[in-house]
């Protein structure tokens, strides 16, 4: 029952997103949309997915979009032409898709084709073959480890892409001026700063718990990475980018992102050298189960490192671009007033 309510709310929010012209409101609605879909995933028993969606959809994605609309302006211009043709295309496609759903198995039926092929093996045999209770982690990190390796490389590549597009060369003088702007700006938020300072260690601790407890409960490298990054981003937001860059060196974070992928790949190479297939952890130790545990621990570390550092690098670059634009604008204003 609760899932029907949540899904209806999702549709209402999506329609509100279409109608709103104020991008700030739209971004806030996207955050609510992410949180609602996370709640829906909990109702569907997908606890690991809900965890990720809550951290990403309601947290980091909202934040990134907010940073971007501070640079691009928050008002959407209304289009002049009537989007009737778009409405027609959408209605037609939607109608055809709904016709297609009539052949789908009903919601919740245990004899649907999807439950018949690979999943019984995962559910019945994963305890003997992998030896950890969380089936999602066994599938993610062992049965489908090669697929996950691909995903990690995609995330790493996206991080490089953002870096190439937004990276600015920093000069020492710029930093000091931006510092003074930030200081005056952040003086006002004393209460938030102190509360955040107390919270940040616990967020780090929680991220580490999620990282290591992923074998036994919901969690793992992806979720832990996002939570770890959100603590650093929180710090950067409240204390200014240049302070955060002094605490956490950006070059260091970039190296960690690459090391995460390297660690993941190396586990595969080592298992090749020990006579197994790529990413076959059974050969990592004399006891197959111990080998699986070791392999999963290592690749989860790789995933966590890459995800956390890519998220931090993405945020640093967006915020750095913003500071760079502000600085450029100030310089222009100074020039025009001098004239």
């Amino acid at each position: 029952m609760i899932d029907i309510v949540l899904l209806s709310l999702l549709v209402v929010i999506a329609i509100a997103i279409i109608r709103m012209k104020d991008l700030f409101a739209v971004v806030m609605l996207t955050g609510i949309y992410g949180l609602l879909s996370a709640s829906f995933f909990v109702a569907m028993d997908a606890v690991d997915v809900a965890f990720t969606e809550a951290a990403v959809g309601a947290g980091i994605s909202t934040l990134l979009m907010l940073v971007v609309i501070t640079m691009t302006g928050r008002k959407e211009k209304s289009t002049r032409h009537k989007p009737l043709s778009a409405l027609f295309v959408v209605m037609l496609t939607g109608g055809l898709l709904i016709y297609g759903t009539l052949d789908m198995p009903y919601f919740g039926s245990a004899d649907a084709p999807i439950h018949k092929h690979t999943s019984p093996r995962y559910i019945n045999d994963s305890m003997e073959e992998i030896g950890i209770p969380n089936i999602v982690t066994s599938v993610l990190a062992s049965y489908r480890a090669f697929d996950t390796f691909g995903e990690v490389v995609v995330i790493f590549t996206a991080g490089i892409g953002v870096l190439t597009l937004l990276c600015v060369a920093r000069s020492q003088k710029n930093d000091e001026e931006i510092d003074s702007i930030n200081d005056s700006m952040h003086q006002q938020h004393l209460v938030i700063r102190i509360v955040a300072k107390m919270l940040i260690p616990f967020i780090f601790l929680f991220a580490l718990y999620v990282q290591f407890h992923g074998d036994f409960g919901p969690g793992g490298g992806f979720q832990a990475g996002v939570i770890f990054a959100s603590a650093i981003i929180l710090y950067a937001m409240l204390f200014g980018l240049s302070t955060a860059r002094k605490v956490i060196n950006q070059t260091f974070v970039q190296v960690i992102a690459a090391l995460g992928v390297l660690l993941y790949g190396s586990v595969g190479i080592v298992s090749l050298m020990n006579g197994g297939n790529f990413l076959d952890y059974n050969v990592l130790s004399s006891n197959p189960i111990a080998g699986q545990h070791l392999g999963i621990l290592l690749i989860e570390w790789g995933v966590g490192c890459t995800v956390a550092s890519v998220m931090v690098v993405i945020f640093f670059n967006f915020a750095g671009r913003r500071a760079f634009q502000q600085h450029k604008k100030q310089a222009q204003d100074k020039e025009s007033s001098a004239c």
């Binding site: 690991d48 997915v49 990720t52 969606e53 990403v56 959809g57 980091i60 994605s61 990134l64 999602v136 993610l140 697929d147 996950t148 995903e151 995609v154 995330i155 996206a158 991080g159 953002v162 793992g220 992806f222 990475g225 996002v226 995800v307 890519v310 998220m311 993405i314 967006f318």
Partner: peptide, 12 residues
């Protein structure tokens, strides 16, 4: 689970 994290990276 992996698609969500890849999704935010590509959105960025």
């Amino acid at each position: 689970l992996t698609a969500i994290v890849v999704g935010i990276a590509t959105t960025a």
